[in-house]
Every structure is written in C-alpha cells, then in structure tokens.
C-alpha cells in the first residue's frame, strides 16, 4: 500500500472528552487529508459519534486540540466551525419535522448568500432524489424514514462543504437505498469533498474508504489502509461478522 497523500485538512491531537464523569474519548488522535474518505469503525458506544461531535463543536474536549485547515478550532462554536467549511450530518437524520422539505433544504444553505447558487444546489438535490421534488411542500416529519434520510443527505449537499462528517448515513435503510447513499458519498468525494465517515456497516465503509481507524471503548486500537483493515483477521471477526 502507498502512504496517505495530500495535505492534512483535519487533525485531532490527543483528545479527551467527558460526558459528566464518563470518560468517552481517551486520547484520540487522527488526521484526514485533502480528498480522502476516512472511516471510523467500531461497536456501539465506542465513541465514534462523540469523536464527530467533538470535531464539529457540539461537545468540547477537556484536553487535546482539533486543527482544521491549519487553524486551532478547539472550543469554537459549531456555527463558526461550519462557516469554515465543515458540515456534520449527525446520527438519526435530525431533519426539522415542522419545516417543509423545501425549508429544510433552505436551512442547509444558511451561509450561502447568492440565490442563484442555492437554486443550482437544489436542482442537484432534486436530480439525485426526484422523490424530494414531489414532496417540497410536505412537512419533514411526515416523510418516511428513507425519505427523511434522503432529505438529510440532500440538506448536507446544500451546504456543499470542504469536509463532510457523516454519522451512520445508512442506519435503518433498505439495502437498495444504502447502495444509493454510498454511491452519492463516492460521487461527492470525486468532486473534491473530503469525507470522514462513521459507520456500523463496516463492510460498506471499508469498501469506499481509503483509510480507516478502529475505535474501541474510546481508544483507537488500529489504523491502516481500508484494504488492510478489511483483510485484518481481528477486524473481520469483530466487525464484519465472520467466524
């Protein structure tokens, strides 16, 4: 395998995050380079979501440093980090149930000033998900689970970030839709978006990613190229469901 290439855009240095007395992340360090898809895999409660939440400013680490585009963003508010070009799609879709589909998409473009650009991005979302176009005046909360996931991804596309943090994009979706979501992830990456992907579905995640980190009870136990991880015996046993 070749060493990772490209400039480091996101770097986490020895982060410790607590929820009250619970030590959720125990000295995690990782980096993401320009144009990569990096995946974090691990069991429930390993700290994958917490890692993303710490990066995007939802929770603050007690110690450690997060650097984004060469700037120390530790302790910054999430809207300030978002404005620098990072978008975090959290676990569980989190669409606004009382806003219409159109309004949900518009919220994605909060920091986009030009209405032409917003329109262009909307058209792109509708091309990917024609179903959304039929539902533009419908409230987000009335959509089916799969449609809500499409809307959540669509809203992330409206942001058009430099780096996208995706938390369980395939959770609870029909297999055919999982394929679609992963297709979109690859497509976005080809267009230059750097992606940090958290997935339960380790098999799919390692298929699209270039590198991966394995997280176990708040610590990184393994880091390697995606291919090597997929071939690693202990990973196969623990996360790919093989004997």
């Amino acid at each position: 395998m070749s060493a990772p290439q490209g400039e480091i855009v996101l770097k986490i240095d020895n982060i410790n995050t607590y929820y009250g007395h619970i030590h959720a992340l125990k000295g995690i360090s990782l980096d993401v380079r320009q144009g990569e898809i990096v995946t974090l895999i691990g069991t429930n409660g390993a700290g994958k979501s917490t890692t993303l939440r710490t990066i995007s400013g939802v929770v603050r680490p007690r110690t450690g440093k997060v650097t984004f585009k060469g700037k120390d963003i530790t302790g910054m508010k999430s809207h300030e980090i978002q404005a620098m070009g990072m978008s975090h799609v959290p676990e569980g879709r989190r669409i606004f149930p009382q806003l219409t589909v159109m309004e949900n998409l518009d919220m994605g473009a909060w920091n986009v000033k030009e209405s032409k650009e917003i329109e262009k991005r909307k058209q792109r979302v509708f091309e990917l998900f024609p179903r959304m176009k039929e539902r533009i005046f419908q409230k987000g909360g009335t959509l089916s689970g799969g449609e809500q996931q499409m809307l959540a991804i669509g809203r992330a596309l409206m942001v058009d970030p430099d780096i996208l943090l995706l938390d369980e994009p395939s959770m609870g979706l029909a297999p055919v839709l999982v394929e679609v979501i992963f297709d979109i992830i690859l497509q976005l990456n080809k267009q230059g978006t750097t992606i940090l992907l958290v997935e339960q579905n380790a098999l799919m995640a390692l298929e699209v990613a270039s590198r991966g980190y394995v997280l176990q009870t708040g610590e990184i136990t393994l880091s390697d190229s995606a291919q090597n991880l997929a071939n690693n015996d202990s990973v196969r046993k623990a996360y790919l469901g093989e004997e």
Binding site: V58, H79, F96, E103, M107, V159
Partner: peptide, 24 residues
Amino acid sequence: TKWGRAIRAVSQDQTMSGLLGVNV
C-alpha cells in the same frame, strides 16, 4: 423570511441548527 425560518428551526433542534451554521 430566512430569519423566521431559522427561528422555527432553532425551536425544533438547536444542535442541528448550529451544525448548519446558524448562530443559535
């Protein structure tokens, strides 16, 4: 208006609004 929409968004999900760039 855009600002009114953001008020409704914040009242439904503050964290998500922040992640989309809204200064809560």
